[in-house]
Amino acid sequence: MRTWLTQVDDLLRGRKTGPELLTEGRVELPLRLFLPAAVVLGALYGFFMGWYAILTNEHPGGWMQLIASTVKMPALFLLTLAVTLPSLYVFSALIGGRLGFSATLRLLIGAIVVNVTVAASLGPILGFFTVSTTSYPFMIALNVALLAIAGFVGMVFLLRTLRRAVAPLLAYGDPVVEERAQTEDGAGETDHTREIGPLERPTRPLPRRAHWQARAIFSVWFVLYGLVGAQMGWLLRPFVGSPDLEFSWLRQREGSFFLALLRHLSDLLGGG
């Protein structure tokens, strides 16, 4: 448990994806640790999400919804990855990234872990609003907003890590050496050799080609994973559980994610 937490913590601190670790086109993220981490942390967010059904659902089955939400959150991320991984790998290899199949998988799992960790850390906020709110459209909007924030952090993590993996080390500079130089100038604080965070920009501009490659790979991944993920989320509904409907593991197949989003917004504005 302790090592597990330390590993996740190291990933968040950027120690697993530092420029010096990615030079060989390898990504040192052990799957046997990070795959369970993605499951557990995703489940934690799902758990907070599922409270809503217990507190508002008059039909029996609120507890089932809690279990369903807890299972579905990590399933959403990992199933989407399972479906898109082959195409993600093929496109990144075509564009010319140095990442092999295993490295691609590890990198994406790393990004998912960052994503679900941020989501789980927002869980208490979600839980609090769940306890104090009965409005279904508001809860949907809040979930979308919180997951969007978490997703954004995950995306930035992925983009920056990709750049590190594609570009040579020198673009990032050596943090310790630069910090020392700063201290000698008298500008920096003593005893603070700062780490390079996982979201940090390179200190020097990347070579044009590396910059373009990282951006192209990222864009393709973003579109593929995003579209499949949105539809996968739609397929796995209900996550929150409408108070008016009886519990079911999955809903009837209908419509698409984008239509539903528009409808919920109009519900929220029209009084729900």
């Binding site: 913590d9 968040l12 601190r13 941020v118 850390s121 869980g123 208490p124 906020i125 952090v153 965070g197």
Partner: peptide, 9 residues
């Protein structure tokens, strides 16, 4: 919790 995680990343 969110503050800690955001500071970390």
């Amino acid at each position: 919790p969110a503050f800690v995680v955001f500071n970390t990343v």
